[in-house]
């Protein structure tokens, strides 16, 4: 029982025919073809499927398409600023925070959202914020370093913006 669902995806008005029980994760990957968002556990434990729903990071593996009418959805594909990487993406590349890459889209989405709330975090605060994003290959040291470097870059930009303003 499909029905047209209209919502905003990465800033663009989007309409898809999809049944209400379809998971947002599957809608994105299998029906719309936006595959940056990954599935890890499928039960809201690992955070690989993190997207923004109405501005807040959520697990897209637990969101039903039926809820989406009028919603604003942002995925990892919406993170770049034009052609340039967002500082959080640049920092993960520079610091080796991407590692195998599978958990990275979810890490980036959660980290960006967190830094908007807390621009100058401690390492422990970063670990608290990222506790719902699991890396199963390497570890978290480089990830935390990358988030700190991104935070520093974002603070530098904010200060520059103030000075130029």
């Amino acid at each position: 029982m499909s029905q047209p669902i209209e919502f905003t995806l990465n800033g663009r008005a989007t309409s898809v025919d999809a049944p209400a029980h379809r998971l947002l994760l599957d809608l994105l990957r299998d029906e719309i073809g936006v595959t940056g968002t990954k599935e890890g556990c499928g039960t809201g434990d690992c955070g690989a499927c993190t997207v923004y729903l109405n501005g807040k990071p959520v697990n897209s593996c637990l969101v039903l398409t039926g809820e989406l009418a009028g919603a604003d959805v942002v995925t990892i594909e919406g993170l770049k600023e034009g052609d340039a990487y967002h500082p959080i993406q640049a920092a993960f590349i520079e610091d080796g925070g991407a590692q195998c890459g599978y958990c990275t889209p979810g890490m980036l989405m959660m980290a960006k959202s967190f830094l908007e709330e807390n621009p100058d975090p401690t390492d422990d605060e970063i670990r608290f914020a990222l506790s719902g994003n699991l890396c199963r290959c390497t570890g978290y040291v480089k990830i935390v370093e990358a988030v700190q470097d991104a935070a520093a870059e974002l603070r530098r930009r904010a200060a520059e913006g103030r000075n130029n303003g």
Binding site: D45, P57, N59, L62, M110, G132, N133
Partner: peptide, 9 residues
């Protein structure tokens, strides 16, 4: 409870 992603829902 859970993660920030879970608690946002």
């Amino acid at each position: 409870v859970g993660s920030i992603q879970i608690r946002n829902r």
